[in-house]
């Protein structure tokens, strides 16, 4: 600051840009983060967001879970990129999405009970709006398969009203947006082979063993 001419505003501008010390150092950033956290808690408590999401711990690692006012709308395994899941929800449902733990508490509780063997059916309400018409038929049939039971792709397709559509049924199961809760792991090949699973075959086998369902030998 060698130029002290009275018409020069650069010193003033410099102070304005940097501002009071508390506003631009780490404390300022963390104050902003805390204010944002309080905002999101309030938004969740007052139901101002269309979608809330949080992570939910599981034996598979941190699952991504998202809920609307209607219910659980999306559950994703750890490998899926949170950003791309969020962007898809923003485009399909609403961009009014916040990260808030409380709305996902029932999901957290029921999944924990399920994974520890204390729960066999989920009482969560579900939001099916990420699922298309055919997917709704296929996953609707799937959601009726009881704990510990299995159906074949062909049986699910037949129940869903398209007897020759086991490949299409497989695709619909593969794009299940709410795995585990809509139990697509209970659908196997006709001979009893595992078939496919969006979360990986190891997890499909693990879930079936948890439920005491018959699984093919490794």
């Amino acid at each position: 600051m060698t130029d002290n001419s009275p018409t020069d505003s650069s010193a003033i501008v410099e102070v304005l840009r940097l501002g009071p010390a508390c506003a631009h150092d780490g404390a300022g950033a963390s104050a902003a983060a805390q204010a944002a956290r309080r905002l999101v808690d309030r938004v969740a408590a007052e139901g101002l967001a269309d979608v809330s999401y949080a992570t939910v711990e599981s034996p598979f690692g941190s699952l991504f879970a998202a809920t609307t006012k209607r219910g659980l709308v999306r559950l994703a395994f750890p490998e899926e990129s949170t950003d791309s899941v969020l962007e898809r929800i923003a485009r399909r449902l609403s961009p009014r999405i916040v990260e808030a733990a409380a709305p996902l508490d029932p999901v957290r509780r029921e999944l924990e009970d399920y994974f520890t063997g204390r729960r066999r059916t989920f009482d969560l309400s579900l939001d099916w709006s990420l699922i298309g018409p055919f997917g709704r038929r296929v996953l609707g049939v799937t959601s009726e398969i009881p704990y510990g039971g299995v159906l074949s792709y062909a049986e699910v397709a037949a129940e869903a009203g398209s007897p020759r559509g086991s490949r299409a049924a497989g695709n619909a199961l593969g794009s299940n947006p709410i795995p585990i809760v809509i139990p697509c792991h209970r659908v196997l090949r006709s001979g009893g082979a595992l078939g496919g699973y969006g979360g990986g075959l190891e997890r499909k086998r693990w879930l079936l063993e948890l439920e005491g369902a018959p699984t093919p030998r490794r």
Binding site: Y53, E87, P95, I97, V98
Partner: peptide, 8 residues
């Protein structure tokens, strides 16, 4: 072509 999720 889309708004980012509000949280972002």
């Amino acid at each position: 072509d889309a708004l980012p999720p509000f949280q972002r």
